[in-house]
Simulated assay, not measured.
Amino acid sequence: MQLKRLRIGGVPEHFNLPWKLAVANRAFDSLGVDLHYAEYPAGTGELTRALRNNELDAALVLTEGAVQDVVQHNTNRLIKVYVRSPLTWGIHVAAPGDIQHVEDIRGRRVAISRYGSGSHLIGIVDAIERGWSLDEMTFVVIDDLDGARRALAGGKADVFLWERHTTQPLVDNGEFRRVGERIVPWPAFVVSARREFISSYSSELRAALDVAATCAMNLKRRKSAAALVANTYGLQQKGAATWLSEVSWSNSYRRPTSALKKVIRALQAQQSIPQSAVDPDRVWHRL
């Protein structure tokens, strides 16, 4: 009997350790599928492009990027929340500066890696969640984290939003001051899959996702989990333990309608998708 090949992709980050463990432990062998898990270091854009190019059948993608891809290209569909806990971004300023409280960032210049990027989007989300007008916002393109460090130190930008674990060393050494945090108001990662693959192999896909969900739950219960995460991804064990206590993988196939609407509104505010109405039914397929 020839096994159906199933190609899954994700970023090389600790969120996807359950898939690496499941493959290593041959947890998919009993499903009748030949599962291949591949890592895509360039992230969301590379993953969604691989789906469109039929290089992958499904991918573990940041929710906002997956929604944007579906709306723009209509070749893939979201089928499951993968990581239901949200990402948390730190709101940073130069430590020696005059900004002491998060309320002080209103109307200040926001450093972003590029227009359309995550730092751009989350800056907009933060303003929306605080009830501030987007017309007050000014953005400064700084390319990357090093560019943000130079911009804040040189007074070319005032505020920088970035994933908090990445910037923690800069807070610890006194270069950045973290004046607040923005918990993104939607699940961190979803599973996006090619429409053609869903229509032909939905049962095999769901079975594989269930196995990965079980592996994720088992990882959370392992006493050695923090050490495993730390050793695999080069983290401090204390930081890995904190991350494990916060992350929550999902075993549900329920559509997060309210969260999807928030993603759509944020992407429209960013002008990454059309302003016309986008129904969550357009981006989600019920397995």
Rank of each mutant, 00 (worst) to 15 (best):
E13T: 14
H14V: 15
V23T: 03
R26M: 10
R26Y: 09
A27S: 08
D29V: 06
A42V: 03
G43Y: 00
T44P: 01
N54S: 11
E55P: 00
T63Q: 02
G65N: 14
A66F: 02
T75D: 01
V81D: 04
S85A: 15
T88V: 08
P96C: 08
V102S: 08
D104N: 09
R106T: 07
R106G: 14
R108Q: 09
I112C: 05
I112N: 08
S117C: 15
G123E: 04
I124W: 01
E129P: 05
T138P: 03
D144I: 02
K156M: 04
W162A: 13
G174C: 06
E175Y: 09
R177L: 15
P185H: 02
W186D: 01
A188Q: 03
S192H: 01
R194P: 01
R194Q: 06
Y201S: 12
L205V: 14
A213W: 11
C215G: 08
N218R: 15
L219C: 11
L219E: 04
K220P: 06
R222D: 14
S224Q: 15
V229H: 04
A230P: 00
A230S: 02
Q237H: 04
Q237F: 05
Q237S: 13
A240F: 00
S245G: 15
V247G: 11
S250F: 03
S252R: 06
R254M: 09
K262L: 08
K262Y: 12
K262I: 06
R265Q: 05
S272M: 10
Q275M: 15
W284T: 00
H285T: 09
